[in-house]
Design a protein around this nucleic acid. Structure first.
Ligand SMILES: Nc1ncnc2c1ncn2[C@@H]1O[C@H](COP(=O)(O)OP(=O)(O)OP(=O)(O)O)[C@@H](O)[C@H]1O
Length: 650
DNA sequence: CACAGATTGGTTTTT
DNA sequence: CCAATCTGTG
């Protein structure tokens, strides 16, 4: 693999500094350099087992391993490589006693939210129920505070507008949430990091042992490290750190990341150095010109100017549509045309701001018969019916798994919150020697079908795939009634059973799956099928494609409505758009639609509503080729019809 | 009383 | 488009 001079200097570094940070713009080969570093280290005689690679997404971890395998062969798989969460959990599962983590269940966001909802229901008075933050919001607060290592109280007073009464109540709910998790032996995503970090800080000998396993730790996308992850890195810093990042691509502030942290790298770690990479290898210059312009517009000086090694090419295209349906239909038609012209589907990527905003496009792609995979948001396999089946698996194996029990029981007709809660209470109070099935039978007379489900899992827990297949069959009639489009949902459950066939232990499968609900299935799909990628910008960090469409680049989306009024949040939105624009290698197509309820369309140009900012408002016309489709059959600005606008209310 | 279906209101991003 | 609440029925 070829590296340029700067990249080589970083990858082959053997100077005085113990820790290195490579700070460089998009497409300058940071990922390539980290791979180069690993190859260099292995070839210099560092055993691959003594390398640890940490990433922020499963997808990134998988990609890195695949790239390393090309150069290093099977040795690549002896490197410990995964997300922070995955690594911490792996360590803790290997020596559970040291972390007091025996028999615990990992809960995903959905479960965490349900638990908070239960507590919210108990603790919030009826009169204020409507005003009080929802479970999802509460979870965001609790999670943010934990990831930023702030006391929840401090965070709520400083960063939210809640009244004192609401803050007190939120704190009480949070305390109860922690208690319940402890009591039921639940660990949410944040607890994985938190428990790991706390234990290491409390037991220096243990921290030293774990850190001592690795000579080098390599971290990708360092700008997204939050304070909790920083603390973990500091605990492990007897190994040498090699981190890469780009402050202009920091888009995870909502998870506690602060891009200014990378600037503090050399202050936090002694004997460290910062290196830079300057040349962009990914894109053509016109694509970078618009990205550079975007950063220049900011009040923050990112000190970046991307320069393409590849030289010049056509300008990016900016296209206005009257509606998002037109927008989606045009993209589908354009994709078809390119495919007929010989370009495989996988060379195309559509970047969306939110999972929701991709819906219309997905419809258009299905209509046009274009194969695609969607990455981001809640994946197909986090769908309700899949979680129902997994809940049955968990419930049958663990009587204290309150959330799983409630979910499973409520699948059945005539069973709602109250019956489910009563049954759970009986299970929690029951003698561990007593058969679970009998405890349930005593609560729910004449509901043999419910107990049969439990029995099926108990009898088949050694063969997860079969357990899931039989459970699906057993619940088919209920699901058929509960969900529409049953046929397509059934195929999800078949896929689930397939995934499970690689595992020997049902709960082991459920846990892996909870932490990684997407990538397995996705990887399989990309390898075997040629498909267009539709992806949220947040998931797209680090990836690239020859042809990229950035969809819905209109006021209210960039910056997103929700960020308005908070300057830091608005600035982060700029970086989100920056990441989106810099994914393209050869062609960048920016589209926007005028029928967004938040957008005012006026005379063929986009005018922001009520003085809110819009990033492309002052876009210099010479940076793009601007087209407009569908506006009164191509009528451009200054249409005489505009004079009618004043009479719209007649 | 407990559940099921209808209504309403606020809509990001991920491990 | 989903989640929480409201309202009608067994
Ligand atoms: N020295 C090089 N020679 C040829 N191609 C290169 C070189 N360095 C990087 N590239 C190519 O440039 C593209 C971007 O590289 P890479 O993904 O490593 O960049 P990055 O800095 O991680 O980008 P981002 O921050 O946007 O994720 C890749 O297609 C890579 O193959």
């Amino acid at each position: 693999m070829e590296l340029n001079q700067e990249q080589t200097q970083a990858a082959h570094y053997s100077g005085d500094a113990k820790h290195l940070l490579i700070l460089a713009g998009a497409g300058t080969g940071k990922t390539r350099t980290i791979i180069g570093r690993v190859i260099f280290l292995v070839q210099s005689g560092v055993p691959a087992q003594r390398l640890l690679m940490l990433t922020f997404t499963r997808r990134a971890a998988k990609e890195m391993l695949a790239r390393l395998e090309k150069d290093l062969g099977q040795i690549a798989h002896t490197i410990t490589c995964g997300t922070f969460h995955h690594f911490c959990l792996q360590v803790m599962r290997r020596i559970p006693k040291a972390f007091q983590l025996e028999n615990s269940t990992i809960i995903d966001r959905d479960d965490a939210q349900s638990l908070l909802q239960l507590i919210r229901g108990d603790q919030v008075r009826k009169e204020i129920k409507k005003e009080f933050p929802r479970a999802a919001t509460l979870l965001n607060y609790i999670s943010y505070a934990k990831n930023s290592c702030l006391a929840l109280e401090t965070y709520l007073y400083q960063f939210t507008e809640l009244s004192e009464e609401f803050i007190e109540l939120t704190l009480a709910i949070s305390t109860e949430y922690e208690n319940r998790k402890r009591n039921r032996q639940y660990l949410d995503y944040d607890d994985i990091l938190h428990l790991f970090c706390k234990t290491l800080e409390a037991k220096p000998e243990l921290a030293a042992k774990i850190a001592g396993l690795f000579q080098h730790i390599l971290v990708d996308e360092m700008q997204d490290t939050n304070p909790l992850q920083w603390r973990i890195l500091q605990q492990l810093s007897s190994a040498r750190l090699f981190c890469v990042g780009d402050d202009a691509q920091s888009i995870y502030a909502f998870r506690g990341a602060d891009f200014k942290n990378v600037h503090a790298f050399s202050e936090r770690l002694e004997h460290s150095a910062v290196l830079k990479l300057q040349e962009n290898y990914r894109s053509t210059q016109p694509i970078l010109d618009i990205a550079n312009w975007l950063l220049d517009e900011s009040h923050i000086d990112y000190n970046k100017r991307l320069v393409a090694v590849r030289g010049h090419a056509d300008k990016p295209v900016l296209i206005d549509f009257e509606s998002k349906h037109d927008e989606a239909a045009w993209i589908a038609a354009d994709l078809l045309e390119r495919h007929e012209g010989g370009a495989p589907w996988h060379q195309h990527m559509v970047l969306v701001r939110s999972a929701w905003s991709a819906k219309v496009l997905e419809g258009a792609l299905i209509d046009a018969g274009i194969p695609y995979q969607f990455i981001g948001g809640t994946s197909l396999l986090e769908a309700a019916h899949v979680k129902d089946v997994l809940s049955l698996c968990r419930a049958a194996m663990n009587r204290r798994d309150e959330l799983a029990w409630i979910r499973y029981l409520k699948c059945w007709p005539k069973i709602g919150d109250i019956t489910a809660s009563k049954t759970v209470a009986a299970l929690l109070a029951s003698d561990p020697a007593e058969d679970i099935k009998e405890v349930v039978r005593a609560q729910l007379k004449k509901r043999d079908d419910i107990i049969k489900g439990i029995e099926i899992i108990q009898n088949n827990h050694g063969t997860p795939s079969q357990a899931i297949r039989l459970a699906t069959e057993h619940m088919a009639t209920v699901f058929h009634h509960k969900y529409d489009r049953w046929e397509s949902r059934l195929s999800d459950l078949r896929l689930l059973a397939d995934l499970a066939s690689r595992y020997k232990d049902l709960l082991g499968f459920v846990e892996t799956y909870t932490l990684d609900p997407v990538s397995n299935s996705q990887a399989e799909k990309t390898e075997t099928e040629d498909a267009v990628t539709v992806i949220t910008v947040h998931s797209a960090k680090g990836t690239e494609a020859p042809v990229c469409y950035c969809l819905g680049v209109q006021p209210g989306t960039y910056p997103h409505m929700r960020s308005l009024g908070d300057l830091d949040a608005e600035e982060e939105e700029r970086r989100v758009l920056y990441v989106a624009l810099t994914r393209a290698q050869d062609e960048l197509i920016i589209t926007r639609a005028g029928d967004d309820s938040r957008t005012l369309f006026h005379g063929g140009s986009f005018v922001q509503s009520a003085g809110s900012p819009y990033f492309l408002e002052y876009l210099p016309p010479d940076l793009v080729e601007h087209r407009q489709y569908g506006y009164g059959l191509g009528m451009a600005n200054n249409s005489i019809l505009d004079e009618l606008l004043a009479f719209d209310d007649i």
